[in-house]
Nucleic acid binder design. Structure first.
Lengths: 146, 146
DNA sequence: ATCTATTCGTTGCGTTTGCAATTACTGCAC
DNA sequence: GTGCAGTAATTGCAAACGCAACGAATAGAT
């Protein structure tokens, strides 16, 4: 086992840990947000990303990157949220290919209701990860990403 | 903004970073493994997990946890790989509810072919993440999870 | 021995996803 | 202006997912 092989194994192990932690948090968030507010994690992520652009608009592509989704998935996700009246599409004047999205007051309200749940469950999930030796290291790293 | 709110925001930000890094790596791995070996990331993960149990068997539930998948998804994934002749189901004698899975020689061979691709792309993806300020911190943390 | 609670894997079903192809628009070259 | 490569968003389609319901097997209580 050379030092290069060691580096490879460290990366592979780190990647497995990342996947495990990601899965743990996502599953817990999904269940909580879905049952308490009828929102999936990506849906919440989109609403939250839009709210963080306070007063400013977001294009579909930015939204896709923010939610770590493909363009097509983003299109349908926005359509779904628009049908529920949580956001609106706004045609872009200067570049008529682009489409802006903006939260409606209904979207802001639902987000305000869901945010405490999200934050609480995220805290719980990270605490749970801290208790698992395999995940404790990475979970701790989350807190120190100032 | 109280100190408690700060902690909440740090966690939320860390979670967004985790999702972004996970998405970046997964997408790159998916494309490379799919085009060069006809394997998805989860399929590779299962084969790799089985190979790491060298000589030992793995139950469906363990496999599900290793791949961060639901039981049902694991059942179908194993079926898919079994149909391709990459692994075999082995009925468990002492607990007849349980089912063991084991790599075939074909599975071992395909894994041996795909592993260099996986390791190379993982290294590239982490290097790419290191170049993105937003992700550099967490990407670096992956290396120091000894 | 039997009854009950629990666990393990599988299946039906509806939903979401990504890829590839398509339409619409921009902007640069000439 | 006209043509043409590049970009933005959308849609058809097949594949994969999770949840809930199910059947089969085990373990503990009486």
């Amino acid at each position: 086992m050379s030092v290069a092989d060691d580096a490879i194994e460290v990366r592979a192990h780190g990647w497995r840990t990342l996947v495990a932690l990601h899965g743990l948090i996502e599953t817990k968030l999904e269940r909580a947000l879905q049952s308490e507010h009828g929102l999936s994690v990506v849906e919440y992520t989109v609403l939250e990303a839009l709210s963080r652009q306070d007063g400013w608009h977001m294009r579909m592509q930015q939204l896709a990157r923010a939610a770590a989704l493909s363009s097509s998935a983003t299109t349908r996700l926005v359509t779904r949220l628009e049908d529920r009246g949580l956001l609106t599409r706004i045609l872009c004047m200067d570049d008529r290919r682009g489409i802006y999205t903006e939260l409606t007051t209904g979207g802001e309200r639902l987000l305000a209701e869901a945010r405490p749940t999200h934050d609480r469950v995220l805290e719980e999930a990270l605490a749970e990860a801290d208790a698992i030796p395999e995940l404790a290291g990475l979970a701790g790293a989350i807190h120190s990403l100032a």
